[in-house]
Nucleic acid binder design. Sequence first.
DNA 1: ACTTGCATGTAAGTGGTTACATGATTGG
DNA 2: CCAATCATGTAACCACTTACATGCAAGT
Lengths: 182, 182
Amino acid sequence: MNVRTLCLSILYSGDASGYDIRRMCTEKEFAYFVEASYGSIYPALAKLEDDGFVTSRTEQQEGKPARKVYSITESGRRAFAEQLAEPLGADMFRSPFLLFSRFAHILPRELVEQRCNEFLERNVHSRKRLDDASEQYDLNPADRWVIGYGRAVLEVAEQHLRTHMHELITMARAEPRQDAAE
Amino acid sequence: MNVRTLCLSILYSGDASGYDIRRMCTEKEFAYFVEASYGSIYPALAKLEDDGFVTSRTEQQEGKPARKVYSITESGRRAFAEQLAEPLGADMFRSPFLLFSRFAHILPRELVEQRCNEFLERNVHSRKRLDDASEQYDLNPADRWVIGYGRAVLEVAEQHLRTHMHELITMARAEPRQDAAE
DNA sequence: ACTTGCATGTAAGTGGTTACATGATTGG
DNA sequence: CCAATCATGTAACCACTTACATGCAAGT
C-alpha cells in the first residue's frame, strides 16, 4: 500500500493538510498499521492534485503558519475505491526485537532485560493509543472493528510478554562480560 | 534490521547458501518477522565476505547445480553480537488488510468476504508453520521462546477474525453494484 | 536568546524489489 | 519436450527515508 493510497484513505473521511496526515499515521490509531514521512506525503499530495484526485486551498491561521488543506474529489473517491478492489498486498511484520530475542543466550542479561522492557513499553503505548481511540463515540463501525482487532492482538502480545519475558532474561548470560584480563 | 545482519543471524547457527537463506526467511518460521529476496541476499553475502565476516566454499552436488556455502567467521560473530547490542529499530506492522477493512462499508459484500477469507487463510498458514516449527525438539530455548510469542499472537488474531469477521462483512454493501442502466 | 511546535517543501541517498540472464537436472 | 526445482548472480528501477532549507509565533 503506497503513500498515495494512504493519503486518499485519510482524505476520504475529511479534509486534511500534509502535516495532519503525517500526524495521523505516526501518532494516531492508524499508526498501528501504516506509516509515512513528510518526504513521501508532500510529493504524493502534489501528484494526487495533478491527477485531479484532490484539490487544495490555503487556509490562513492566526498565530500559526498557513496550512494547505486538501479535499478529495469525486474522481479521487472513485480511484480509491478501485484501488481497494484490487488484490491486497500481504501484511508484513518486521521485528528487530524478535531477531534480537533469538540470541538472548549470547547477550548480557542486563541488555536483554532492558530490551524486553523497552519493547513492553512500546507495546503498552500502542495499546493505550488504541484504547483511547476506541472511546471516541463518533467512530464509524469499520474503524471501530479495525481498532478492536488491533487491541486484541496487542493485548495478548503484552500479556505474553509480561508472563514470559523473565524466561528470556534468564537465558541471557549472567555476567555482563567475562574478560578477566585487560 | 538490514539483510546483512539477517544473513549473519542465520549463519550464526550453521552454514548456508544464499538459496538456503532465502528459503529460511520466506518459507520457514523466520518468515514470521523477517523477509529478503535474492536481489538483496547475494550482494549482502558478497560484501560480508569482502569484510571477512564470512567465508565461502563451493560444494558440488550430484543431480543438482553446485552451491556456494557460507560460514560465519569469528570476526563475523563478533560483528553480529555488536550489532545486536545497538539500540533496536522499532518493530513494524503494515497491513493493507486493515486499511481495506476501514472501508468495508463502501465495498461490495462479496469482496469483503473474500478478503476476510484470504486473510484468515494466510493467518492459518503462518500459524501452522510456527506450530510445526515448535515440534522440532532440537530447538534452542531462545528460538522456542520467539516461536511461542508468534504463536500466541497469531492464535488470537485468528480467533478474533473467526468470531468477528461476519460483523465486518455485514457492514459491506449488500448489492454487488447498483448500476441499473448500462 | 533559545527551544519547541506548526507548517511546507526538496534533494540526495538508500535499501531494498523485480525482472532478467544463465544453466543444470529431474519428473511428468 | 516442457515445467519445475535447484542455484547464482546482475541491472534497472522504485518507493521511501533522512537531512536539509525556510520561516513564523509562542513560550521559557
